[in-house]
Amino acid sequence: MRKSWLITGCSSGIGRALSETVLAAGHALVATARDPDLLADFPARYGDAVRVAALDVTDPDAAQAAVAAARDSVGGLDVLVNNAGYGNVNSIEDTSLDEFRRQIETNLFGTIILCKAAIPVMRAQRSGHIIQFSSVGGRIGAPGRAPYSAAKWGVEGFSEVLAAEMALIGVKVTVIEPGGFRTNFADDSTTLDEGRPEYDAVVGAAARMQRAFDGHQPGDPLRAAQVILQVPAMDVPPFRLPLGRDVSEALETADRARLDEVLRWRELSNSTNFPQTGEVGAFRGQVNPSDDTLPSR
C-alpha cells in the first residue's frame, strides 16, 4: 500500500538512505533539509513521487508547510520521521549555554515542533505512524555529548507520553536508537573538541574515538533504512527499536545495571511512604504499599 512519508534531515546519512529506500519502494515522500539544493537530484530520479522542501526543524511555520505538503501529496500524512539532528563533543564546563540551547532546540524541540504540526492531520484521519530518531545516547549518557544526550533523553520521555496519547487516536509511535553507522555524523559540520586535560579520560577519549571510528562504524545505513521501512507496515510495531549489535549489547548491560541499582536501594526508596497499619516494611518500620496510583510530589 502506497503511503505518504515526511522525513527530516534527508541530505545525508540514514536520512538520505531511508528517503531513497522509501521512494524505491513506491511511496510518496516529502524530503526535507535545511539546504534543499542537497536534494536536487531527487525530482529527476523519482519524479512526482517526491517533493523537496526547505526545513529548519526549529521553525514552526516551516514545519506546518512541510506537513501540508505531505498531506496534499496523497491526501494524508501516513509516516512522519523525525531524523534531523546533530551532536558536538566537548565538556559540560566548556560548552556554552548558547550551544546547549542550539543542540537541544534542534534535537528535542525540532522533534516536538514536527509532531505538533503532524498530530492534527493524523488525528483527523485516525491513523499514522511517528518515528522518532533517538540514539544509544538517549538511553546511556554519552561522555562529551551532554547537550546531545540531554536532548535525546528528552525525545525518549516525550515519545513515551506521545505514544500513550496517540494510541487513543489510532496513531503509532516508534523510537529508533542507532549506534555507530557509517554516515557523515563526524564530518566538518560536527565539532570534536578534546578539551582540557582534567576531562581527557572521557571527553578527549570521546573525540579521539569519534575520529578514529569514522568510516569504520559497524552499522550499514542502507540496512537500517530497510529495517525502518518495515516498521509502519507492522500490526504491532516496537516502541523502541535499537539498531546495531553494539547498541543491543550496551543497552542490555545498562538496563541490568539500572535494575540492580533499583533493587539495591529499594528499602531506602520505600521508606519514604507513610506508614500503614498492619503493613510494616523492613526499613525503619515504614510501609511498602502496593498502590501504584499515588501521585508524585
Rank of each mutant, 00 (worst) to 15 (best):
G219L: 08
G170M: 02
V155K: 06
A206E: 11
F181T: 09
A186R: 06
V203G: 05
T183Y: 08
R182F: 00
E165F: 04
A205Q: 13
L222W: 10
M209W: 11
A164D: 14
M166E: 11
G157C: 07
V202R: 04
Y199S: 06
A167H: 08
A225C: 03
G154C: 05
L162R: 07
A224E: 12
W153S: 10
F181Q: 08
P221S: 09
A163C: 02
V202I: 15
A212K: 09
T190A: 14
F181E: 10
I228E: 05
R223P: 00
L168V: 01
R196S: 13
V227Y: 01
A164M: 14
D193A: 12
S159T: 03
E198K: 10
V227I: 15
A212L: 07
R196A: 14
A151C: 06
P218F: 05
E160G: 01
I169A: 02
Q226D: 12
A206Y: 00
M209R: 14
D188F: 02
R182Q: 12
G180P: 02
V161M: 11
G180V: 01
A207T: 06
V161A: 15
P218I: 09
G157I: 06
D188I: 03
F158V: 06
G157L: 12
D200Y: 11
R196G: 04
G219I: 08
G157K: 10
L229P: 10
A225V: 03
R196W: 09
I176R: 05
T190S: 13
V175L: 03
A212V: 00
D214Q: 14
Y199H: 13
D193M: 03
G215H: 02
Q226N: 10
F213R: 13
E160S: 01
A201L: 10
V171I: 05
I228L: 13
G219Y: 07
T190C: 15
Y199C: 00
A164P: 00
E198M: 07
R208I: 00
D187N: 15
A207H: 02
Y199W: 11
A224I: 06
G180R: 10
F185I: 15
I169M: 05
V173S: 03
L162W: 07
A164K: 14
L168C: 02
P178K: 08
D200C: 02
K172D: 03
A163L: 03
T190N: 09
L229H: 10
T190F: 00
I176W: 07
E156S: 05
S159N: 01
V171W: 01
D188N: 09
R208S: 06
E194I: 12
Q217F: 02
M209D: 09
L222S: 12
T191D: 06
G215R: 03
L222N: 13
L162S: 05
L192T: 05
A205F: 13
